[in-house]
């Protein structure tokens, strides 16, 4: 399957195609995150919707994983290959056109990859701050009423607490309290700053990536290309800002101060 690595240009195609898949995902992710500004209900509903996708969620996850792995493996292979293609370095070297973002793709990429692992452990698996991960919103029903418990952590504890009540609580609906998890997580300034740095790197990475995608796949008409280059940079800014605005707002107390 990795035979394509013997062809540098095909490897570039793989980079471009997997890259654009990841960019599309990231764009959706960023837009989804912004729902935090619409309030807890909107965000948690969205999160629940995603989690309710079932096998589709897993298809998406596997797809993204494959894309990410191909992107990373190919990039590392290309980097080593390209490094070897210029074994003797210049004593003096000045770059004219190669911008910092293009020259640091591998490094920003690897840092982003490391961050993504952290991020998944943090908010998807929940092993970084398990105390924040456990919160759930639960609607329960007993003989008298439908109750909403916004600060539930698990059903069993709920059960125990409610043992004295009359009747048996039946869980009507339960969803992960993503809002609370996120807010509590980002109230930690170290974590917030770490995220902010990471998404700036991501934006930086993307500012080269978008136009690179067009160039690699050959959609580079002189009429549009200057616009594509501008779009690429704008897109990098957009992604970085869309992501960092969430921890920044929490840190500044603009949102989530009531949690």
């Amino acid at each position: 399957m990795f035979k394509y690595l013997n062809h540098v240009v095909i490897s570039k195609f793989v980079m471009a195609i997997t890259g654009i898949i990841l960019i599309l995902f990231i764009t959706g992710h960023a837009l989804g995150n912004l729902q935090i500004f619409l309030g807890k209900e909107a965000l948690n509903k969205y999160a629940a919707f995603l989690q309710g996708l079932g096998e589709f969620l897993w298809i998406e996850r596997i797809g993204l994983l494959v894309a990410a792995l191909l992107h990373i493996i190919t990039s590392i292979y290309l980097k080593l290959y390209n490094y070897n293609a210029r074994p003797d370095k210049y004593v003096v070297k000045r770059y004219i056109k190669a911008k910092l973002n293009s020259r640091t793709m591998i490094w920003t990429g690897l840092m982003i990859a490391a961050f993504v692992i952290y991020h998944l452990l943090h908010f998807t698996v929940g092993s970084i701050q398990p105390e924040n991960y456990k919160y759930k919103e639960i609607y329960t029903q007993n003989a008298y009423s439908v109750e909403y418990n916004a600060n539930a952590t698990s059903l069993s504890s709920q059960d125990n607490d409610n043992d004295a009540n009359i009747g048996v609580n039946k869980i009507l609906y339960e969803r992960h309290d993503v809002y609370k998890m996120v807010v509590l997580g980002f109230k930690n300034p170290y974590i917030s700053i770490f995220y902010i740095v990471a998404v700036i790197l991501l934006g930086f990475h993307i500012s080269h990536a978008v136009q690179s995608f067009f160039q690699t796949l050959g959609w580079n008409s002189p009429k549009y290309f200057t616009w594509i280059e501008k779009l690429s940079v704008a897109y990098g800014y957009f992604i970085a800002i869309a992501f960092l605005i969430v921890p920044l707002s929490i840190l500044l107390g603009i949102i989530g101060s009531n949690v």
């Binding site: 293609a85 056109k97 793709m105």
Partner: peptide, 11 residues
């Protein structure tokens, strides 16, 4: 080597 779209060649 391969192309990383640095565009240094064009310059």
């Amino acid at each position: 080597g391969g192309c990383s779209n640095y565009y240094e060649c064009e310059a």
